[in-house]
Simulated assay, not measured.
Amino acid sequence: MQNEPFGKYLTLEQFCTCTQTYCKYADRIDPYPKNLEETLPALEALCQHILDPVIDHFSMEQFQLTYGFCSKDLKRFLSQKDPATGIKNGRVDPSRDQHMAHEMNRNGRYYCSRLGAACDFQIAGLESDRLVEWILEQQLPFDALYYYGINRPIHISYSPKRRHAIWAFTAGGVPTKKGIKQWLERVNPHF
């Protein structure tokens, strides 16, 4: 199961083990989903509706997955500081970012009520604003798209809701609509 493709290209193992934090603490992290019945179809839908068309166009050689599925263990490590540097391992917002897909907490509630699934990726040799433009031109059915900057990966999610929400982020990580009016107008002409 871990090495079988979800869509045309990506395997569960690639999707669950791509983060720097996982690579750093791999011996202490179980990166795989527990709610297989709901999470696996959500990850598969993300691949089929968003990532497969991207890879079809740009190639697997250029595609760089930087953050895929976030397991409970990975979430715990992302929210901790590196003992050597004192710097937080990563940013995590499981209640909103959809990286945990349909995983549930110990109370039986979804970590993210938005459901669906998300990942962060970039295309080698392509500025991220141009990648966003291409996604909008292709009218890919995303739920949320986060633009962090021209040389950084984008975040994209897929869910049956398909809100077409687009956010940019300041250098300090604050969400904003500033500077992306042209994208917002393309997905919502009444913006």
Rank of each mutant, 00 (worst) to 15 (best):
R28P: 13
R152M: 14
R162E: 15
G179E: 01
I123N: 02
Q48F: 08
R96I: 13
Q139Y: 08
F63Q: 05
E61L: 10
L74N: 09
H155K: 09
F191Y: 14
L43M: 11
T176H: 01
P94V: 10
L145P: 00
F69N: 09
Q182Y: 08
L43K: 06
C119F: 05
V54L: 04
L126D: 13
L184W: 00
S71H: 02
S79H: 14
C70P: 07
P5E: 09
Q48P: 05
A124R: 15
P160T: 12
R114A: 14
K72P: 11
I150G: 10
Q2V: 12
F63P: 03
Y148A: 00
A165V: 13
R130Y: 13
F15S: 12
D97N: 12
L131P: 06
L51N: 06
G90T: 05
Q138K: 09
G172Y: 08
T85S: 11
I154T: 00
F69V: 11
Q139S: 15
L184Y: 02
A101E: 06
A118R: 03
L40Y: 01
Q98N: 09
S128K: 03
G86F: 07
G149M: 02
K81F: 10
F58H: 09
R163D: 15
P33C: 01
S79Y: 10
T19N: 06
G108Y: 10
K24E: 10
D73P: 08
L131N: 02
Y111E: 06
C47V: 07
Y9K: 00
R76H: 14
T11L: 04
C23D: 15
Q182N: 09
R162P: 08
A124V: 15
G108C: 12
Q62Y: 12
A144F: 13
A26H: 15
A144L: 14
G7L: 03
H164M: 13
K8F: 06
P31F: 03
I123Y: 05
L65M: 07
I87H: 09
K88A: 07
K161P: 14
G179W: 00
K177N: 08
S59A: 07
V187Q: 02
F15D: 03
E103P: 03
L10C: 04
I123E: 05
S128Y: 07
G125T: 11
E44D: 14
S95R: 15
M104L: 13
G108N: 12
Q80H: 14
L140E: 07
G86H: 09
A168D: 01
G173R: 03
E38I: 01
D93C: 10
N35P: 00
T19F: 08
K75C: 15
K178I: 11
P189W: 08
T17N: 06
R91T: 06
L12Y: 01
N35D: 02
T85R: 02
D27I: 13
G173T: 01
D129C: 09
T66Y: 14
W167K: 11
H102G: 01
R106Q: 15
Y146P: 00
A101C: 12
Y67T: 13
P175C: 02
C70Y: 03
R114V: 08
L65P: 04
C47A: 11
L184I: 03
S59L: 07
Y32V: 00
T85N: 04
Q2G: 15
I180L: 01
F77W: 12
Q139M: 11
W134F: 03
C18A: 12
G173K: 03
G68F: 01
E127Q: 15
